[in-house]
Design a binder for these strands. Structure first.
Lengths: 124, 124
DNA sequence: AATACTGTTATAGCTGAATAATACACTGAT
DNA sequence: ATCAGTGTATTATTCAGCTATAACAGTATT
């Protein structure tokens, strides 16, 4: 996997796993790949994977069965809440960043629409 | 100034200056604060400021008169292009991130609208 | 010439992120 | 009991980012 420079890899791994969960590719109770498999898949050190998983463990999104593996929580309420937070945070940051670039809230919708129009034209 | 952890400070300084330019608070040809003043303002080391400015220099957004200071380029075409890029990059990332969270392009507009509605209600 | 601004460069030291390598500990199947 | 697959922990090493401090170099004003 390719990682951005300038952002710690373990955070990007977290983000990657969160997205898998948000997309439903990893579901409640499901086992995730072992730390060693992930390390190989992501071409990253085991310790780095471990660090990401520990955090998600602390956050309650994953739980660990020693000797067996890591599993997505079965707390579906927490999962739903987490998914919503991911999206809200994205929206938050977007609005804030655009505001800081001088784009006003009331124009955001139109700017976004125009952008999507443009990007669709490129693909045609 | 407060900086996010996990993103190099010199990049955040760049971002800060780019925003000042995008907002028109720093205009073509205008002198920007000296490295030492910036260092104090931003509570950061001179070398860190220097690093940010060097990059912007390389990118042509600033030019340096040794002994006098740093100035915003007078190439207004470049400035306009830069402003547009900042916004486009923001849009790019937003669409990409939301897609990775399972929100489809065709729903983005509505999701954004709803979010803005929600945030406006909070302020009332 | 002196002073007070500018930008520039260099050194040494600290911290966090990441790696490699190794070992330990637990679980489940053979 | 053994083995293969899990998570966990330790150590040593490298590197990037940042700081503090100091020195050097150019410009403008006095």
């Amino acid at each position: 996997m390719e990682f951005k420079d300038n952002i710690p890899i373990y955070l990007q791994i977290e983000q990657y796993l969160y997205r898998q969960i948000a997309m439903g590719k990893l579901q409640a109770g499901q086992k995730i790949p072992s730390v060693r498999k992930l390390a190989v898949e992501l071409t990253v050190n085991v310790n780095t994977v471990q660090r990401a998983l520990q955090q998600m463990n602390d956050q309650g999104i994953l739980y660990t069965k020693r000797g067996e593996g890591n599993f997505v929580t079965e707390d579906t309420a927490l999962l739903d809440k987490t998914k919503q937070s991911l999206i809200d945070n994205e929206l938050d940051e977007f609005v804030q960043n655009m505001t800081r670039l001088g784009v006003k809230k009331e124009n955001l919708g139109q700017v976004l629409e125009e952008y999507i129009q443009r990007s669709e034209n490129k693909n045609e």
